[in-house]
Design a protein around this nucleic acid. Structure first.
Lengths: 200, 200
DNA sequence: GTCTATATAGAGATAGAC
DNA sequence: GTCTATCTCTATATAGAC
């Protein structure tokens, strides 16, 4: 949105497109689907955007700029290692809550879109995300907050996947808030589901 | 395969189709893609199958019959609750190792395919899967093996998602075997990544 | 079992009127 | 800013020859 004011027609159309892309996938969403949902005809969309690709491009870039700004702030903060990791998990669940369509598009279509030159930045963001999590995990181990025997790469994948895949079932405004889900996920991630002490 | 013997032409074509579907998604895979990969022309595929849908249908049903047979065997076993849960996780990683294409298709296309009458069994299998995991978790809590304060539904989603989403990065025959991945995932799932005792 | 040829439908995108 | 009309390409699927 243009700084929290009334959304422009362009922003409104992007919002509608994002919903369609998230629901049916990028390739599986037709320009006519988007136009129908917006109450106009398909040709009219081309007054606002060059192509279907331009729409998803703008959707993803806007979202990722915001998300990675938050990760950077966490990395740059003076919090202890465990707090940083928790904050990163919480920020991610908040993103799922506030931008579920964008997260879903990234989860479902990034691989496919990434094969085009225009979307080369998706691979960059992917590498950047890996760097963020790996840094947090390594800081955690160094600080004695995380188990020293952890396989860092595997743990990174575990965290990344468990967090983002929640977009498949989490529904904003449902019974469970994103902070509740984050609480429980952080607890399982850090302490496990086992009862008693099993950290041999 | 027809019992472990030489695969028939039909089975060979299904294998090729599964790979294409897994790589590009069902809708995004053309019958020409499949025919090209098989070294024949698109029209020739229709000698073996009615439609693209019939291909994915046969792929998914064959896979799920096998997988759920294994879950049923675990549920019916006399193992203790924790062992059953571990076995279910391990069987799932083994499925990712041995049938990565089938798992990927189910992960990526089940939602979309499930909206057609013909694929109504996908929703049934989904409900059955939920039943398997929820049963194992509840048995684990009742037996004192799992924390009594767990949110069963959330824990079910957590386990289901973390296990199956690994199909996105796990590569059979790579450096890490499926049993290694399962070992580490079971450890994180049960005991967490935190160092020391935090099970307050 | 595969190929040639083609019917039919749906997709993204464009030009110009309103 | 939207509509009318349409171009072009690509997709699934079919019929009949080899």
């Amino acid at each position: 949105m243009s700084a929290a004011s009334t959304p422009s027609r362009r922003e409104e159309l992007l919002r509608i497109a994002a919903q369609q892309f998230a629901q049916k996938g990028f390739r599986n969403t037709t320009v006519r689907d988007i136009a129908d949902a917006a109450g106009i005809l398909s040709g009219s969309l081309y007054h606002h955007f060059d192509s279907k690709e331009s729409m998803v491009d703008e959707i993803l870039q806007t979202f990722q700029d915001e998300l990675f700004g938050q990760y950077d702030a966490i990395l740059a903060s003076g919090d202890d290692a465990r707090t940083k990791l928790e904050r990163a998990v919480r920020v991610s669940f908040e993103a799922i809550d506030q931008h579920p369509h964008e997260v879903a598009i990234f989860q479902n279509d990034a691989d496919h879109l990434g094969s085009f030159d225009r979307f080369g930045y998706l691979a960059d963001r992917n590498a950047q995300s890996r760097q963020v999590w790996v840094t947090l995990i390594e800081e955690g181990i160094a600080a004695g907050a995380l188990r020293p025997d952890l396989d860092v790469t595997l743990t990174y994948r575990f965290i990344r996947d468990t967090v983002w895949v929640a977009v498949r079932w989490y529904r904003p405004g449902g019974g469970l808030g994103h902070t509740d889900v984050a609480d429980q996920y952080v607890r399982i991630l850090l302490d496990g589901i086992s009862d008693g002490i099993n950290n041999a």
